Computed example of a mutant assay.
Amino acid sequence: MIKATRRTVTLSMLALLAACGKPPSKFKAYNGPAVTQVVVNKSDRKMYLLHGTTVLKSYEVGLGNVPVGHKQFEGDGKTPEGVYFIDRFNPRSRYHLSVGVSYPNQQDAALATALGRHAGGDIFIHGRGPEGNRFAQKNRDWTAGCIAVKDEEIEEVYAMLRPGVPIVINP
C-alpha cells in the first residue's frame, strides 16, 4: 500500500513539474471593441489600432532597413506607403506571429513594372522572433519592408485584427 502511494505521489509531482514547464500560448483572446483601422506613421515609428477615432492600442515599430520613401520594388528595403488591407495571418512566422498587408496594389505593381522590376510582396506586421531580436539590438529599422513590433505586442495585434481591416501607412 505504501509503495502504491509513493508511486502516485511521484507521478503526481512529475505531472505538476511538466505542467509548470509548459510555455504560455502565443495565441491570445481579445473581447474588446473591433479594430476598424490600423494607422502607421513611419516618421514617428508608431502604429495605432483604432475603433472609429478611438485609439485602442499604440506601438513603437521598426520598419524596412531603408525607412524613408514608398516601396517601389522587391528588395528596396522600404516599407510601403498608402492604403492597404489586412489579408492573411501566419501562425508559423519565423518572426513569432505575422499579419499580412495587401501590398502590392495595382498602382504599386504598375510602378514596379514601369521601372522594369517586380513589386515584391510578403509585407507583414510581425514580431521579432530570435532573429529579429538580434537585428533590433543593432538597428530599430531592420526588416526588408515589414512593420515590426515586440513578440508580446504581435500577440495582441494578431488577436485584435481581422481580415479586411484597412491599414493606412503614412510617410
Rank of each mutant, 00 (worst) to 15 (best):
P104A: 02
A109K: 06
P91C: 06
M160R: 00
E156R: 08
A4F: 15
M47S: 07
E155W: 02
N90K: 08
P163H: 05
L16R: 03
I123F: 05
T36E: 07
S102Q: 05
P33N: 15
P23R: 13
L17W: 08
N170P: 07
A136I: 05
V66L: 08
I147M: 07
Y103M: 03
N170F: 09
V165Q: 11
E153T: 05
V68Y: 11
P23E: 10
V35A: 06
P80L: 02
E153L: 00
N105S: 03
A144R: 12
T79P: 08
P104W: 04
E74M: 09
V39T: 12
Y59L: 04
H70P: 00
L49G: 09
A109V: 07
L97R: 04
N65K: 12
K78E: 01
S25F: 13
R134F: 09
I154N: 03
V101M: 05
L50E: 10
A18S: 09
G100C: 05
S12N: 10
T79Q: 05
K46R: 13
S43Q: 15
G69I: 01
I167E: 09
A4H: 14
P171G: 15
V9M: 12
M13G: 05
T36G: 06
R88A: 13
D76R: 08
G21D: 04
A110Y: 03
L161T: 07
P104T: 04
P67W: 01
E131K: 14
